[in-house]
Structure formats: C-alpha cells, structure tokens
C-alpha cells in the first residue's frame, strides 16, 4: 500500500467528537436548560410529586415512542401510532363488559382472552402495514396514513360516539394503579425502554435495524433481508402502540373517539427531539428517553408558569422545528467528517 493510505488518519480532536456527538449533545443540553429554567421560574417544579407527574405523563407516549424508534431507525415512518393506540384501546373495551348506561354493543370475554385478542389485533394491523410497505411497495408515509384512517374508522364504528369506562382488571392496574406511590405505567414504560435498548444494542436484529437504516442498498447487497426487517419494525411499532392504547385508556379512565389525538405529534417529536436520525441508522432508545423528558418537562413547565395555553401549542411546534433543523444538520456534519 502507498504511504498516503497508511498515514491517513481520522480527523482528530474536538471537532470530530462534537460533530459525531451533536445529535446526542444537543438534546441533553436542551433538557438541562429547560430544567434549570423551570426550576428557577416555578418553586413546585423540583418537588417529587411534580417530577413523578412528569414521568407518568410521559409514560404512555413513551410506550408508543419505543416502537416508533425502531421504525425511524430503519429510515421509515409510522403515522398510524396514535390512531392505532386508540383503536386498540377501544377494541379492548369492546371485549369487556360495560355498565348498562354505556350504550355500546360489546362482546364481553374473560379478561385474559380479551387481552390476548386485543394484542393480537394490534399485531394483525401492524402486519397489514408491513405487507403494504414491503410486499406491495407503498411508501410507509402513505401506507401508515391509510392505516391511521382505517384505525380511526375502527374506533368510530366500535364506540359510535359513546364512551367506555370498564377494562380488564389487570390492565386497569397497569394503566392506573400504583405501587409504593409509583405508577405502574411508569414501570411498564421503563421496562419496555430497557428491553428495547437491549434488543437494539445487543442483538443481531438490532444490528440489522441500524444497518438497514444506515445504508439500505448496502444491507441488501450484503444479503440482509431488508424487507423482513422493515416488516418486523412495522409490527413492533403496532404492538407498542397497541400496548400504549390498552394502558392509555385505563390511564385516562375512558375509551372514546379521538382519545389519543395529541399522541402522534408527541411521540414523533420525542424520537426526533431526542436525536434519532430521520434518515435512519443513528440514534436509539437513549435518545428517545431524553426526547421524552424534554417534551415532558416542557409541557409540565409551561403549565406551571401559567403561560397562555394557545401560545403553548406554538412553542411545541417551534421546539419540534428546532429539533428537525439540528437533526438534519447533525446528519450532514456526520457525513461530512466520514468523507475523510
């Protein structure tokens, strides 16, 4: 080999580190700034109750965001998560006996069977999305948009404008119950985040997810079954959304049309604000956790300092835009330094 090759070394020093780590540093930095700001502005912000409140508010979004992280890491998107969560929550209510004053046709089943059937429906809907994206070749953006509408349709047909209140006991416990003062939903979300992190970091499947997102063509030419990986993340996303829907309706205490309307934007924001690349291949559960905390702290803090609630909506939009700018910029920096 020539000398030039052997002396060619990666760009050294701080610049390389910063451009590599920008997508990780920026969200953590944002989180610290927000926490400091709200801690100064509001005396109750740092109370244990309030911090637990932030976590429990983030827990349902967090479960959705786990599945979405897999999808976005492969460079795809799932816009059906919130609608699917709602449809699955309602499906669970449909299989549970409701009080007389709730005027909904139901098929009451024993709790265990109800839970199994409900999860199976989530997986089935995810499989439909996976089929559309991988076998038919519909872009995930459009396919999941269609699935969003289908899920909304299922929700509408099952509740017909009514509200269901009763869910299997086990789900009610997980969604609304507490242990040692800690909400079960926080524990479920944390365990799921941990499990997803282990899968993404330490399993073969996780590696494939990153590699497919990093360079789909190269993965395919290395003999990776790209379609299977993308199909799998779509099903994982639907399963996570389904679980979030089941726990969510229990958390809210009701299942109704439009119950999860805010969750699509929040879940996507959490993943993206956390720094997972929209182009796939970079990021992970750690980023999603930071993203969830940033959004949780922001929502909570804006309530505490009693800001105009209409302005709050705009602020969330601006934060998302800022995160998108950083996301794309970080990608360019990364590619720029790898050019060598």
């Amino acid at each position: 080999m020539t000398l030039a090759d052997s002396t060619k070394s990666p760009k050294s020093g701080l610049k390389q580190f910063l451009s590599d780590q920008m997508r990780n540093i920026a969200p953590i930095f944002t989180l610290i700034i927000l926490v400091l700001f709200f801690a100064v502005q509001s005396p109750v912000f740092f109370s244990v109750d309030n911090l637990l409140n932030i976590l429990s508010n983030a827990s349902i979004t967090g479960i959705i965001a786990v599945g979405l992280t897999f999808v976005i890491l492969t460079g795809e998107i799932d816009l059906s998560v919130a609608a699917l969560a709602n449809a699955i929550g309602i499906t669970m209510a449909f299989f549970t006996i409701q009080p007389d004053y709730v005027n909904i046709a139901t098929i009451p089943l024993p709790g265990v069977i109800c839970i199994i059937l409900t999860i199976a429906s989530a997986v089935a809907l995810g499989a439909v999305t996976a089929f559309g994206v991988t076998k038919i070749g519909i872009p995930s953006f459009i396919m999941t948009l269609a699935m969003m509408q289908i899920a909304n349709g299922v929700s509408a047909l099952l509740v017909r404008g009514q509200i269901a209140y009763i869910f299997p006991d086990f789900i009610t416990l997980l969604g609304a119950g507490k242990i040692f003062g800690l909400r079960w939903s926080i524990i479920v979300c944390s365990l799921l985040l941990l499990f997803a992190h282990l899968v993404l970091t330490y399993t073969r499947f996780g590696r494939y997810v990153f590699m497919v997102g990093g360079n789909r063509e190269a993965a395919e030419y290395s003999g990776v079954n790209v379609k299977m990986i993308i199909g799998a993340v779509m099903v994982i996303s639907a399963a996570c959304s389904g679980l979030a829907g089941m726990l969510g309706v229990a958390y809210f205490g009701s299942a109704q049309q439009n119950g999860f309307d805010d969750f699509l934007l929040t879940a996507i924001s959490a993943v993206v604000v956390g720094g997972t690349s929209l182009f796939g291949g970079r990021g992970g559960i750690g980023n999603t956790i930071i993203g969830l905390l940033v959004l949780g702290v922001l929502n909570n803090g804006l309530d505490l300092i009693q800001i105009d609630s209409f302005l709050k909506i705009l602020i969330r939009g601006l934060i998302l835009l800022a995160a998108l700018v950083i996301n794309v910029y970080a990608q360019k920096l990364k590619e720029g330094t790898a050019e060598g």
């Binding site: 073969r204 590696r207 590699m211 360079n215 190269a218 290395s222």
Partner: peptide, 25 residues
C-alpha cells in the same frame, strides 16, 4: 456495498452475523 459512517468491523461482519450470532451479538 459499505456503511461509510459505521466502523470497519461492522462492515466486515454484516454478511456473516447469522453465522456468528444466534440472537445476541
């Protein structure tokens, strides 16, 4: 064919992952 931002070892192992790992890497 290659993943430019990934380390060399991941580029080498991508085609043989199923031979060296069952589930865990």
């Amino acid at each position: 064919m290659l993943f430019r931002t990934e380390p060399v070892f991941k580029n080498v192992s991508i085609a043989i992952l199923d031979r060296i790992h069952s589930i865990l890497l």
